[in-house]
Each structure stands twice: as C-alpha cells, then as structure tokens.
Design a protein around this nucleic acid. Structure first.
Lengths: 116, 116
DNA sequence: CAGTTATATAACGAATAAAGTATATAAATT
DNA sequence: AATTTATATACTTTATTCGTTATATAACTG
C-alpha cells in the first residue's frame, strides 16, 4: 500500500482522519466513537502512520494519535488542475448572465475573462 | 466499487483523468499515450463512467471521453476541513514574522486574523 | 461484401486487502 | 505479585480487483 490515494480509499480510515481533525485521540476513543473493533482500529492506524497521515505519542498505556498534513496536501495538489472544471462552469454562468444583462452581485474577479 | 475515493485509488485511472484535463480523447489515444492494453483502458473507462467521472459520445467507430466534475468535487469537499492543517502552519509563520517585526510583502488577506 | 479498425466484454488467474479471532506486550491498579 | 487496562500483532478466511487472453460487435474502407 503506497499512495495516499489508496490509503484514503478505505472508508474507516477516512472516518478516523475525520475524527482527528478536531483533536488527537487514543485508540480506545476512536474504537468507541466509530464502533470498530480494537484490532481493526490499530491496524488502520498502523497503515495511516506508515503512510505519514498520523503520528503518535505515548501516554502511559495509551497512544495518542494526531494528524500530519503532508499526504493530504499531496492529494490536494493532484486535485488542483481539475478545479478548473468547476470554475469553468462558473465562467459559463457568468457568460450567460452577461448576455442576459443581469450583473451579478459578486466582487470583481481578478481572473482572466473570456476573449472578446 | 462505489465511492469516488476508491475510483481514484487506481494509478492508471488517475492517469486517464489527468490526460482528459486538456481535452477529450478516444480510447485508442489513451491506449497509446499511457501504454496500456486496449481492454485495460476500456475497463477503466467503464468504471470511470459508471462513477460519473467521465462521459462519452460516439464518433463513428470511436468513442470520445471527457471529464465530468462532480465526483472530483466530492473529493475536494471532503478535503476542505483538512486544509486548516496547512493554513494553520502559515498562521504560525505569520505569528513568527510579526514577532520579528518583519512585515511580509503579500497583499492584505481577507481571512480572519488571530485574536489579539 | 470482405476486410479492417475501434471498442466492449467475458472468462480466468493472481494478487491484495479487510475483518475477525486469538494472543502477545506493557503499563497501571489493587 | 496478580489482575486489569490499553494497544499491537499474527493467523486465517473471504472478497474484490486488476491484468491478460480471447472473442463479440459495429462502423468504415476498398
């Protein structure tokens, strides 16, 4: 299991990452909040740790897990060039509204406008 | 195979999506540019189509595939709350630079600044 | 209409991943 | 020291997925 994309393909792992947004958690807390078995949680955390999504510190018998940003940034970076797909749709709407002569109540964009 | 995340977990599928950013392509074009077998390409395109990532139109014997935005927007939406992980780091840098009294040469942000 | 080009699909095999059960390790509690 | 609590790991089973080979379908070409 290598890529960040394969890691987040698993729904339980996405759920774990989601939990960790607000704060770090112990294995037991994750187990209870997501209703997963303890070995399942530990196994997913191992995968997440080895892929750099989380790190842990020891607190007595507990281990506290928290998020690391890098792998998700990588996903974000891959996604970037596709964003023009939906900003392009906004452009189409603007084009339409311009033709209708109904100015939109949004602040002026710095983006390059369509060619005359 | 349901979620958008599982679809983009496959490297060849990500490559196909990447190709389609610039323009629509036929199966044969994808086959050549990515050096995949024809059945492999067709199979991945079927998965991508059924998940809403692409759509196709018929052009004689060819089928031309192009991107649809929705599933990638879904991924983008999931990612959104995690972005604070790395914008928070920018905040930390700003805090540091402020203490150093070395103003940064960037245009003023509209974002909410930290509390005084 | 026979052959060729373009794409889809079926069938098979190999690899992988996920969950569950059982057990190991280690720190805390009594 | 014995027990309990917290987490990790090994093993097994099941299911899914990907690639390949072979074949089907359909449209264009000579």
């Amino acid at each position: 299991m290598e890529s960040a994309f394969e890691i987040i393909a698993e729904p339980n792992r996405r759920a774990i990452l989601g939990l960790l947004i607000s704060s770090e958690r112990s294995v037991g807390e994750i187990e209870r909040q997501l209703q997963m078995s303890q070995p399942a949680v530990s196994k997913h955390l191992r995968v997440l740790r080895e892929a750099g999504f989380v790190e842990s510190t020891v607190d007595a018998q507990r281990r506290l897990y928290r998020l690391r940003p890098e792998p998700l940034q990588e996903v974000d970076a891959w996604l970037a060039p596709f964003r023009q797909l939906w900003s392009a749709r906004v452009d189409a709407l603007e084009r339409y509204l311009d033709r209708m002569e109904m100015p939109v109540s949004t602040p002026p964009k710095k983006k390059t406008r369509r060619k005359r």
